[in-house]
């Protein structure tokens, strides 16, 4: 790993100021993408700004129809949280399936969303649960947030502070994990907001997306069969050694149908 300057600011304002003044800085959250990238020398920031301990980025609060989660909350904390389990069990289930136990003990929700890996789990939830991504300077609707491969609406020096999820009447997440990495080959969250259904998809294309035709079909009738002939989202499906584009397109429908089946069976 190349040398860098390590900073541990005591306030969010100080973190952003350090970022502004450094030559080629990076924020450090859980580090479970950034640090392996640095050990392989695929990234060599001049300065690492550690966000751990910033109070603006911590805490979980369920307030009526919104579940607000601090960006530094680790996946294991999301999975174990009684607030999350109570308000949004599908999100706790999703967190419990991220990576492996050691990854969940370090990786954070804000870090995952800021990185926007095409196969990460949280982006599907952010879209399906109509999340508002709060930063040090503004609020961004999840629908406006994901822009492309590892590309988001965030400015270079912008820090995610909290993620506010809308609490649906019911929701479920189904993923087809890569057996080695546990990343989503395809993952789909279906969320029912009193008859208005939202569908968030990850792993399929360059970044997470919604499926308008799926949403219309499920809003008309919430049953797996509604998706039999529904049009797939118009995206460039990923193709790699793990799955062809055709296979991923197939998985999108199957995962959406499985999530719908779980909701319809009333188990979520």
């Amino acid at each position: 790993m190349n040398p860098f300057n390590y900073h541990k600011p005591s306030s969010l304002a100080a973190a952003v100021a350090l970022h502004r003044d450094a030559e080629d800085p990076a924020y450090l959250s859980g580090g479970h993408t950034l640090l392996p990238t640095m050990t392989q020398r695929l990234a060599a920031p001049s300065d690492l700004i550690d966000l751990e301990g910033l109070t603006e980025l911590t805490g979980i609060a369920a307030q009526g129809s919104v579940l607000s989660i601090g960006a530094f909350t680790r996946h294991a904390e999301v999975a174990a949280s009684s607030e999350v389990r109570g308000a949004l069990p599908a999100l706790a289930d999703l967190a419990e399936g991220v990576g492996d136990a050691q990854v969940r003990n370090r990786g954070t929700m804000g870090g995952s969303l800021a990185n926007s890996d095409p196969a990460a789990d949280y982006p599907a939830a952010a879209l399906a649960l109509n999340a508002v991504i709060r930063t040090d300077r503004r609020e961004i609707a999840a629908d406006d947030y994901f822009r492309g491969l590892f590309e988001t609406a965030l400015a270079e020096d912008e820090v995610i502070t909290r993620i506010d999820f809308a609490v649906p009447s019911r929701a479920a997440y189904e993923k087809f994990p890569n057996p080695a990495s546990r990343y989503a080959t395809v993952g789909v969250m279906v969320a029912d907001f009193r008859g208005a259904v939202r569908v968030g998809i990850t792993g399929a294309g360059p970044c997470a997306c919604r499926a308008p035709a799926f949403e219309a079909a499920l809003s008309a009738r919430l049953a797996p069969a509604s998706l039999d002939d529904a049009e797939l989202p118009a995206i460039d499906f990923n193709s790699d050694l793990h799955a062809s584009a055709e296979y991923r397109a197939h998985l999108v429908r199957v995962m959406a149908q499985r999530a719908t089946a779980r909701i319809a069976a009333g188990t979520d």
Partner: peptide, 17 residues
């Protein structure tokens, strides 16, 4: 690390202060 299992190749020594 504080009782939780972590992969020591993906934690900076600095983060264990």
């Amino acid at each position: 690390l504080d009782g939780r299992s972590v992969k020591a190749c993906t934690v900076l020594a600095a983060q264990t202060q």
